[in-house]
Design a protein around this nucleic acid. Structure first.
Lengths: 228, 228, 228, 228
DNA sequence: TATGAATGAGGATTCATTCAT
DNA sequence: GATGAATGAATCCTCATTCAT
């Protein structure tokens, strides 16, 4: 089941990515600039963050920013580009595919997937927040987001869902509906944990997640999961 | 069951709201300005939209904007303020409470609620989009959003959910988990319909919604709803 | 002898010209900006003159410049555009044609032409200087210069020269050579008067011009003009 | 006839010249920098050419430029300085004087001179173009140009012209007028050959020059040259 | 009420130049 | 000798806002 991979991003960005693979080879100041930009873009948005403020926060001269990033927008791309690699690179998706294809009960597969994605999200939250925020305003980013993160994931999910429907593991509902339920559960979980961070602090996070998956499984499994 | 009502918004905004209740008494130009601003803010975001472009689009002089709205930010508030009224005013919430309290099967209550909220959302999408987008960057708006839209709704929902759990209509799960599932289902539905508008065009939108509710009910109801 | 007229300038500039015909309707500040720019561009060149210095010299805020001229380059075009009209508009060239076609001895025709052009040049020297200087660096201006000023003039001159050769008034030399001599004489006169302004001050300017024409006529006329 | 020689240039430049006489001892990179600068300055002018572009074009690091030339302006001087030597150094002018003093008919002297100067101009065109262009904006260069190239040449010319008037070889006109005619003829020739390069390509260039000189001689010689 | 000319602070970006390596 | 990262002043231009009309 070969998975043809489309351009992760459009031209300009693709180019950026190439020059970036080497995020480790960055100079000290370059890293400081990126960190400052991540913090600011996440907090106030791309358009509301000025290069002068980024420079101040990074402790560099304003000109220095432009030595490393041709353009303010290039800086944005440099920040979010790696997110597409982390979340959607074929290498990483293999990880996901592996989870999906392990011969496990659906419930565990879904839990594992959620945990995997949530961990990734948590580790990269400020950057991922920027991706999500700016996708609303930059059609190119929105495109990359839908094409590379959403569609890919959806494709993988739908294939697996279809399979489990055929095996009577899932209820005979439209594939799309079940897939959407799986997404929605995670989306809602993320939303609540960000909107009410106090309630999702610390220990019982996973309990919350398991509750969510429990409801989901009751909703989509052919047999009531407790009978399992 | 008295419902204590908090300030819909914080000071500055509250003030705006007062002067605005009268959205009908607006002059022609004022309305044109608001419409132009709605279109632009929705499309490019608040910070990326200039007052000069708003003026051009509205066909008024730039100064005219400031005759009606002291500040660009006041214009933003004037646009989104009404959303809080439409979605959360005590008057309107009565509508929601009524649906909740009608003695109907949970499934129908939820469907009705979803339809009610979705219709409201659809009618006011550009403004609502602005609220959601800008909440990400303006803490005051985020606050108003959580306090007035989310918390209120959550409050109402949790009360009702708790009730139905006690009546063994819903499974004995944490109230929070069920409430979240109800939200998630709608959130996911909205997300998919915006992300893949082609698939959610026209007629079978409601079928999609019913599928989603079906899964939700399987997930949270004590008895498999197919017995219904 | 209809004279087909080509575009005076390319698109961008043509557009400028239209909006400029009305150089009289300019506001006070607009005029001050143009005057300051003329002085600075003439003195230091376009690239070496900053908008901030123009603003200071004009006594306006820097932003004001850009309210009136979209771009620094537009300001340049606005300054030199009128030169093309003054020197090459069909209306004005009629003036030149009239001189050429009056039935006068060549010597007087040439003298009249020189005086006419020199007066025009003197009246508009700072702007014309800018045209000549900047043509060296901006291919579009160079083009407009050659197409509209030089080629037109050359066309008119060659027609007349050819005629006078046929009538044995001028020596049977290549038309191009005689035309070039006529141009060169004027070019050299202008050069000297600018390079050694002291020598060309005041009263005997015209004597200098007559000397130059005298030599020219000896050079190109079939009979020695000394009979005059 | 001792020829008092003024400073070729003013202080700063003179100093540069000294350190430069050694244009042959330049390192490889130094030469590449100069070549890149010549090309760029000629094409876009001094102010519009950035050191970074010069460095890129020369294939050196930006810092390298400043190792060899203290200042961007020093680089300019280093480029044009040699022009003053080539065109006006006593050594070279001896060449000119020799031509002038050979006992030849004026026509041939002038032709030889023109050819000599034109050849020099053609060989050094890009640099000479820079001198002429930048003289418009840098008073020091303009001064050097007038003092060293124009005045010297004019001085030589006027002496010779005066002589030939006294010998009735040239018409009894003001010396200045004849000298100016001689300059104008060459100036016009150069102007036309640069403005309409197509017409002055290849073979018949010299025919054009001879035509120009022919007209000039008719204009200034006491006897019609064809009688010679 | 509405205008639009005017403002000047602030925007992103480029510049010539320096300096540690 | 050569590098290229770093600088910060200066560049052109846009911004939200004011105010006389």
């Amino acid at each position: 089941m070969a998975h043809e991979h489309k351009p992760l991003f459009d031209e300009a960005i693709q180019e950026m990515l190439n020059s970036l693979k080497t995020e480790d080879e960055m100079t000290e100041k370059q890293r400081r600039i990126m960190e400052a930009a991540i913090a600011l873009f996440a907090e106030k948005g791309f358009h509301a963050s000025s290069t002068s403020e980024i420079a101040r926060r990074a402790g560099v001269a304003e000109g220095t920013i432009f030595k490393h990033f041709k353009t303010k927008k290039d800086l944005l791309y440099a920040l979010i580009g790696p997110m597409f690699i982390k979340f959607a690179s074929p290498l990483i998706l293999k990880d996901v595919k592996q989870i999906i294809n392990e011969d496990l009960p659906a419930e565990e597969v879904i839990l594992k997937l959620y945990r995997n994605r949530l961990a990734l999200l948590e580790e990269n939250w400020p950057r991922m927040r920027i991706v999500l925020q700016e996708a609303l305003f930059h059609p190119d980013i929105m495109n990359a987001l839908l094409e590379n993160l959403v569609k890919d994931a959806r494709g993988l999910a739908e294939a697996s869902v279809k399979n489990r429907i055929e095996q009577s593991e899932f209820r005979p509902l439209p594939v799309k509906a079940i897939t959407r339920a799986i997404f929605s559960t995670m989306l809602g979980y993320v939303f609540f944990s960000k909107a009410f961070p106090d309630e999702y602090a610390n220990e019982d996070k996973d309990k919350d997640l398991r509750d969510a998956v429990d409801i989901l499984m009751y909703g989509i499994a052919n047999k009531r999961p407790d009978s399992l």
